[in-house]
Simulated scan of single mutants.
Amino acid sequence: MGHPDPVAPHLAQGLAPWNADEDDILVCRQVRAETADVKSFIFAARTPRLFHYRPGQFLTFDFEIGGETVNRCYTISSAPTRPHLVSITVKRVPGGPVSNWLHDHMAPGREIRATGPMGEFSTSTHPAPKYLFLSGGSGITPLMSMARSHHDLALPVDITFVHSARSPADIIFRDELDLMGRNLPGFRAISICEADSPGERWGGFRGRLSLDALSVIAPDFRTREIFTCGPAPYMAAVRGILGQAGFDMDRYHEESFDFGTLTGAEDTATAVAVAAPGLSYRVEFTKSRRVIDCPADKHILDAAREAGMRLPSSCTKGLCGTCKSKIVSGKVEMKHAGGIRQREIDMGLALICCSKPLGDLVIER
C-alpha cells in the first residue's frame, strides 16, 4: 500500500495566501543553527498556504513566556520567491527573554501566533540600478531576504553586500553568501571581522567599517542606493561615514531594531472623538498598581512615561504590538498602523502607544 505524498498538497494549484486575520498560527518546521549563537526558525501555515511579502518586511509574534504574552518584531530572513515557508533568524542575547526562549524552546511542531507582514524597508519600494547593503551582526536578516530574492530570480543585479562580524565564526549565512557570489554575476559579498576565530585566522578586511575600507570595497558607493541594518551604534557609525563622504542621504535607507523610525500603513481609527481642551481622565493600571492622570489629547503610553512608569513598548507608532494591553473598563480612541488584529480589538485590547482616553480607564498592565 502506497504512502501519501507529503509534497503534493504544497504544490497544488490555486493555494490561498496566508492571512493572519483569518488564521494567525504558524507551525515551526525546522530550526537551523547558523552560528554558535544564531538560529533560523522556519515556519509554515497550519494548512498549505503561500506567504506574500516584500523582502525586508517583518512579522510581529506573540510569545507566551512565564504566563505573560510578550510581543516582538522579527525581520523575515527568507525570500518571497520561496513562498511556502517563512523564516526568522535570531541571535541569542544574554538576558534577552524572547531570544533565549526561542533558542531553548522553539522546535519543529510547535505553534506560535504572528501577524503581518509589515514595513517599508525593501528594495521593492526603492528600486535602483545599483545597491550597497551594509549589515552588522544579526542585522543581516532583512538584507539577506533581499539578496535571496534577487538570487532566486537570477536578475541582472549590481549588489555589493558588506557584512560586519566579530569573527569569521560569527559571519551569518557565510556559505550561502559565497554561493550567491558564484552564481550571480554582479553580486559581491565581503565580510569585515574584528578578530580571528579560535579555529580560523581571518585573511580579509579587519577591524570595523570605515570610509577607507568602504572606498576600497565599493569605490562607487556614492552612486549606489544604500540599505543598512544592525545595532544602533553600527548604524550611527555608517551615517557618520556617509556624512563624511558627502553621500546623498536621500538614497540611504535603514532598518532599526526598535522600529522607532518605521512608518506603517495608513492609520486606521477604531474610534473618533474630539477632546475638550484641558480635559483629563483617571487611568488605573491593575498589575502595576498605579493610577495616573492622562489628558484627553495625550497618548496613554506618553502619560504613563511622564508619570515615571516603565511599560513595554517599541515602535510607539501602533506598528509592532509590544504595548498591547487589555482595556478592562472604559473606551479609547486608537489610531494604529497594523500592530493589532481586529478580533483583538473586539476582545478589548488596545495599543496604548497610539490610544487616547475617552473617559476614565482601567488597564490590565
Rank of each mutant, 00 (worst) to 15 (best):
D5T: 02
D5C: 06
P6C: 06
A8N: 09
G14D: 10
L15Q: 03
A16N: 09
W18Y: 10
N19M: 04
A20M: 01
E22G: 02
D24K: 09
R29Q: 15
A36F: 12
I42V: 15
F43V: 00
R46V: 06
H52V: 09
P55N: 03
T60F: 00
T60G: 07
F63D: 03
E64F: 06
G67P: 10
G67T: 11
T69Y: 04
T75W: 01
I76Q: 00
S78I: 06
R82H: 15
R82Q: 15
P83C: 07
V90P: 08
G96M: 08
S99F: 05
S99R: 07
N100Q: 12
W101M: 05
L102V: 02
L102H: 03
M106G: 01
R110I: 09
R110S: 05
R110C: 06
G116A: 03
P117V: 05
S124D: 11
K130L: 01
G136F: 01
G137T: 09
G137H: 04
S145E: 03
S145A: 13
L155T: 14
D158A: 09
V162K: 14
H163T: 08
D170Y: 01
R174K: 09
D178G: 10
L179N: 09
G181K: 12
P185Y: 12
G186Y: 13
R188I: 06
A189G: 13
A195T: 13
R201W: 03
G203W: 12
G204P: 10
F205M: 11
R206A: 08
S210Q: 11
L214I: 13
V216P: 01
A218R: 08
F221E: 05
R222M: 12
I226K: 07
F227E: 03
T228P: 01
G230E: 09
P231F: 04
Y234S: 04
Y234V: 05
M235G: 01
V238Q: 09
G240M: 02
L242F: 08
L242T: 07
Q244G: 05
A245W: 08
G246S: 12
D248R: 14
H253V: 09
S256L: 10
F257G: 00
D258Q: 12
T261I: 09
A265P: 10
D267G: 15
S280V: 02
E284S: 13
F285T: 04
T286G: 04
K287I: 05
S288V: 12
R289F: 00
R290A: 15
D293A: 09
P295C: 00
P295F: 02
K298N: 05
H299K: 12
I300T: 02
I300W: 00
A303G: 06
A304R: 08
A304I: 07
M309G: 08
R310Y: 07
L311V: 09
S314G: 09
T322V: 14
K324G: 02
K324A: 04
I327D: 02
V328S: 06
G330D: 12
K331L: 02
E333H: 13
K335T: 10
A337Y: 00
R341Y: 01
Q342T: 11
D346H: 10
L351Y: 14
I352Y: 01
I352H: 02
I352L: 13
C353V: 07
C353E: 05
L358D: 00
V362Y: 07
I363S: 12
I363R: 04
